[in-house]
Simulated assay, not measured.
Amino acid sequence: MEYEICLEPSGVRFKADENQNIVEAAKAHHVAIKHGCASGSCGDCKGTILSGESEQGPFMPLLLLPTERAAGMAILCKLYPRSNLRLQAEVISGDIWNTEIVGLSKLAWNVLELRLRPEKPYPYRSGQYARMAVPGQENQWRSYSMATPPQDWGELVFHIRELPGGLFSRWLFYQAQCGDAITLGPPQGDFALQDNTRPLLCIAAGTGLAPIEAIIQESMHTGQTRPIHLFYGA
């Protein structure tokens, strides 16, 4: 059975089957709801149920605080309609950026530094991430954080870890070459350097260092003198 989904405040409407989660149904109608992992692990697709019946599928429990649950918030990539729904959700730009691989270098046996040159400026903030289309795989996207603040020459830098069986990472490690094309969606994420003088406490592990590295570099390049403490686990 299909139901009508209305997103506020954009007013966007689309149909969703009872077996489709909200993010998946939106994609099928070329509506881009802000999201990241699409597996209930990151929380980027948080929204609020304003009216209607739905079923919330499993997700990482810490993504919603008790107060958020009480306020009707939900993880939209795991939310299934059981009636017409009215939701508060962020709709992002459907713009894409065509980029060219200009650098591939190993940082470790299982980590590559990927450098991309976009055909037009990519308007991101340090700490944000980009969604990359998996070459040759329709509707398959992967999310990676930029590892440097915005550069005057426009290059984007990413640290990619090889995952066993990973569609994108294995293509990157064993097939990709400089000159190959990669499509990006718009920058996403609210993790960014705040404009204040409070000390920075940064904790990261593995390639999760990338967005923090960008934030620390920006803090230093802009002449900020706040204390910065970094705890890193390889």
Rank of each mutant, 00 (worst) to 15 (best):
C42V: 05
G179I: 10
G223V: 12
C37F: 02
T222S: 15
F191T: 00
S145L: 04
P150H: 01
L85C: 12
K106S: 10
G47L: 02
H30G: 05
S39Q: 11
R13Y: 08
S93F: 00
C6S: 15
P81V: 02
H29M: 07
S105H: 13
E4K: 06
E113H: 15
G40V: 06
N98C: 07
A28K: 14
A38M: 14
A25F: 14
G40S: 13
A205Y: 00
E4W: 05
D95Q: 14
R198D: 14
G36W: 04
C45S: 10
T48D: 01
C202Y: 04
V157W: 08
G179D: 13
G57F: 06
A130C: 07
L107N: 03
Q188W: 00
I203D: 14
L193R: 01
M1F: 06
D17G: 14
C42R: 08
P9L: 07
K120Q: 15
A28F: 06
S54D: 03
M1I: 04
P211L: 06
E213C: 12
A192S: 08
L87E: 02
M132L: 15
C77M: 13
G103F: 01
G223L: 14
G208K: 08
L116D: 04
W109M: 04
T148F: 03
Q224T: 03
F59W: 06
R117F: 09
I33V: 15
F173S: 09
Q188F: 00
I75Y: 06
G43D: 05
L201E: 08
H35G: 00
D190S: 12
L64M: 05
D17P: 00
L114V: 11
D195L: 05
L200F: 03
G154N: 11
R115M: 02
I212R: 02
W97N: 01
G94Q: 13
H221T: 08
P123D: 01
I101A: 02
Y124M: 10
W109V: 01
P121S: 10
G233Q: 14
P121I: 02
D152I: 06
E162A: 09
Q88S: 13
S39M: 10
P211N: 07
G57V: 04
E100M: 05
C178Y: 01
A38C: 12
P149W: 02
V31T: 12
S126R: 09
A147D: 11
L156A: 12
W171P: 00
P211K: 03
L76R: 09
H159C: 03
R82I: 08
N196T: 03
F191M: 12
I216S: 05
K15A: 15
A133N: 00
P58M: 09
C178E: 15
L172D: 10
E119I: 01
E162G: 05
R69Y: 02
Q56M: 11
I5T: 04
Q175A: 07
Y129F: 15
G103C: 07
Q137H: 09
P199L: 10
R82N: 15
R142Q: 08
W153Q: 13
A192M: 13
F14I: 12
V134T: 07
C45V: 13
G189K: 00
E218T: 02
